[in-house]
Simulated scan of single mutants.
Amino acid sequence: MAKDHYSVLGVQRTAKPDEIQRAYRKLARKYHPDVNREPDAADKFKEIGEAYNTLSDPETRARYDRFGSDYRHYASSGAGPGGNGGRWGPRAGARPGRGGYGNVEVDMGGDVDWEDLLGGWFRQQAGGPAQGTDHEAELWLTLEEAVRGGKRTVRLAQPDGATSNYVVDVPPGVLDGQRIRLAGQGGPGREGGPQGDLLLTMRIQPDSRYRLKGRDIYVDLPVTPSEAALGAKIKTQAPAGTVTITVPSSSSSGRRLRLRGQGMPNPRGLPGNLYAEIKIMVPPSLSKEERKLYEKIGSVSDFNPREER
């Protein structure tokens, strides 16, 4: 026995379209075969896709609500099997005054092939060709990939269990949560209508080296005590490549050095900045000579960082 589509998505039969869409997105992410390695994940994903395809289309949902799992055997206009007579109900989404029936049902008996006679009229009233549903997925990027952009190949599972590859041109400076639309890569159209689109939401993976705030990028810059005291030019790795940072003399831990425009690119305005935060590091162990030199510095210096200044 076929499973109830509403139960598959975990929604009530009175659920609104946005509730159905939210439920589908949540389950599709959970059971996507590229993410979920359970043996039945692909079958579950296909089942979820079938339920969503049925309930996301108002006309198909209306037939499903009326005829249950046998809804595919009924004409789109609502006639019984074979199209000969039957009981005709309101077209899904019909509105009084716009060609719909409202809540009126008309009983057309006899042997007339009403589907053949009125099929074109009903298709016209239903709006004719319609664009397919948009599909949604997430594309995970490293911070370096988000900064540099470039082409990415994405492999996505389809509702029928098959997989398809999509080539995505990621623009430099894309931010977490931004969307890229691939026109015509979504669900098939109805009655010859155009395909829907594929909407890819960009997600940037957390990185232990960098912190992204808006378009500004923060990175820790480890320096030796002598580099912090005397100043130095230090090469370090940034998401866009290697950069050289000038450390001023007498720099303490926590000091932030700004590299203007070296953060996240911005296709529509100014790029972000790169901030290097100084972290003074000491050797894990000291040689005899290093210890003597540190002791000498301690004996000649009157600097006390614990005094208020």
Rank of each mutant, 00 (worst) to 15 (best):
E136P: 00
A137Q: 03
A137H: 07
A137M: 01
W140Y: 13
L141R: 09
T142M: 11
T142P: 12
T142L: 10
L143R: 06
L143W: 07
L143A: 06
L143I: 14
E145N: 04
E145H: 03
E145I: 02
A146R: 05
A146G: 14
V147P: 01
V147F: 14
R148F: 00
R148T: 13
G150Y: 13
K151R: 14
K151S: 15
K151P: 01
R152G: 03
T153I: 13
V154E: 12
L156I: 13
L156D: 05
A157T: 11
A157F: 01
Q158H: 03
Q158A: 03
Q158M: 13
D160S: 09
T163M: 03
T163E: 13
S164D: 09
Y166N: 04
V168R: 01
V168P: 01
D169W: 01
P171R: 04
P172M: 08
P172Q: 09
G173E: 04
V174Y: 05
V174R: 15
D176F: 00
D176T: 11
D176K: 09
G177W: 01
G177V: 07
Q178C: 04
Q178Y: 02
R179Y: 03
L182H: 05
L182I: 10
L182N: 03
A183K: 15
Q185G: 01
G186Q: 11
G187I: 03
P188E: 15
R190C: 00
E191T: 01
G193Q: 09
P194M: 04
Q195Y: 04
G196Q: 04
G196A: 06
D197I: 10
D197M: 12
L198V: 07
L199V: 15
M202S: 05
R203M: 11
R203S: 13
R203Y: 06
I204S: 06
I204T: 08
Q205H: 06
P206Q: 12
P206N: 11
